[in-house]
């Protein structure tokens, strides 16, 4: 690495760390602007004027109004799912002290996916709303199972990660089995599984909203404790932190957030992994800044993915989960190469 790049790198991080408020604020503004813009993106012509009219409740062109009414829950959901996944990933990476940690790693995603699929496929005639609590419970149960299996006088980060991968694989096998058993019903279930904001309404927004409203502020308040945990178990215990209890609680919060996100939107990969990475790169390792930043990056990723999915090949809809995978995969590889140097 040349000296110039080092200097640039140092200047950039220090700038972001000196004025985190300004940078965070501009990220927030960017997310809001992108949200409004995304309301006008899609298969039909909806002008920005229509969007503003519809949002403030003016009766303009009626079709455009209805369109915005259907898009609005999607955009709100993109915010909530982005926040939930970003924060959940940031906490998991902090607690497990593994930059590869994400809701996918501790089994939440696959557990929720399996429970949702079980309900969708094995019990026909089940009301669709029942998927949400089932997936949520499945996510929590899978994470609990991982924790139990990993527990040996405390659950070390490495054990959690390894057991998480094994349990995820087992649930993945279960999902495959269900898919093979029910070939005819697969298409609808697969769309839920890929992760998409297609056809979501205000009720989905209300289902995830309480989790985000309660858990995210709680996690931000606790961000100092995350910093302490990051010093390593021995040092953290030496500083008077009840390591195992704090870890357990923080993991529970993160898991609940991720499970709520998967329950309403299906399994959207990479957001929980990449948003915290971006946040740490820009805002550094202090959790009090990196957690809200991870939330904002999560929102940006989700809005972008949903917008791209709607706007790329209308009237066909590309599931947001597919877009995040396509965008997230290469970024993740870039990260691996970069950290490998």
């Amino acid at each position: 690495m040349s000296a110039a790049i080092v200097a640039q790198h140092v200047r950039r991080t220090s700038l972001a760390q000196r004025y985190p408020g300004i940078l965070m604020g501009s990220l927030g503004v960017l997310a809001v602007v992108l949200s409004f813009y995304s309301l006008s993106v899609g298969a039909t012509d909806v002008s920005m004027t229509d969007v503003f009219n519809a949002v403030i409740g003016n009766t303009g062109d009626q079709a455009a109004q209805i369109v915005v009414q259907f898009q609005l829950p999607r955009v709100l959901l993109a915010w909530l799912v982005g926040i939930a996944l970003g924060v959940s990933g940031a906490v998991m990476q902090g607690v497990i002290r593994n930059p590869l940690a994400a809701p996918d790693v501790v089994g939440v995603t696959k557990g929720a996916g399996f429970a949702g699929m079980l309900l969708l496929l094995a019990i026909p005639g089940m009301p669709v709303v029942a998927v949400v609590p089932a997936a949520f419970a499945g996510g929590l149960a899978a994470a609990a199972l991982v924790y139990l299996l990993a527990y040996r006088r405390g659950a070390t980060p490495v054990r959690i990660a390894l057991v998480g991968i094994a349990v995820s694989a087992a649930f993945e096998a279960g999902i495959r089995f269900l898919l093979v058993r029910n070939p005819l019903d697969v298409s609808a279930a697969l769309i839920w599984l890929t992760g998409s904001l297609f056809g979501r309404s205000m009720s989905s927004v209300l289902e995830i909203l309480p989790w985000v409203l309660v858990l995210v502020p709680l996690i931000v308040v606790w961000s100092r404790r995350l910093d302490v945990l990051g010093l390593g178990d021995d040092l953290a215990a030496g500083l008077g932190e009840p390591v195992e209890r704090t870890r357990r609680l923080l993991l529970l919060f993160a898991v609940a957030l991720a499970a709520a996100a998967v329950a309403v939107s299906g399994t959207i990969g990479f957001v929980g992994l990449i948003a915290p990475h971006m946040a740490r790169r820009v805002f550094g390792g202090k959790h009090v800044a990196s957690i809200p930043a991870a939330a904002l990056f999560g929102v940006l990723l989700m809005i972008f993915a949903d917008m791209l999915g709607r706007g790329l090949a209308p009237p066909l809809e590309i599931p947001a989960g597919l877009v995040t995978a396509v965008v997230g995969g290469p970024y993740f590889l870039y990260l691996l190469v970069k950290t490998g140097k």
Partner: peptide, 9 residues
């Protein structure tokens, strides 16, 4: 996943 936007229009 039929496009609700197009159906509305």
């Amino acid at each position: 996943t039929p496009n609700i936007q197009v159906i509305t229009a």
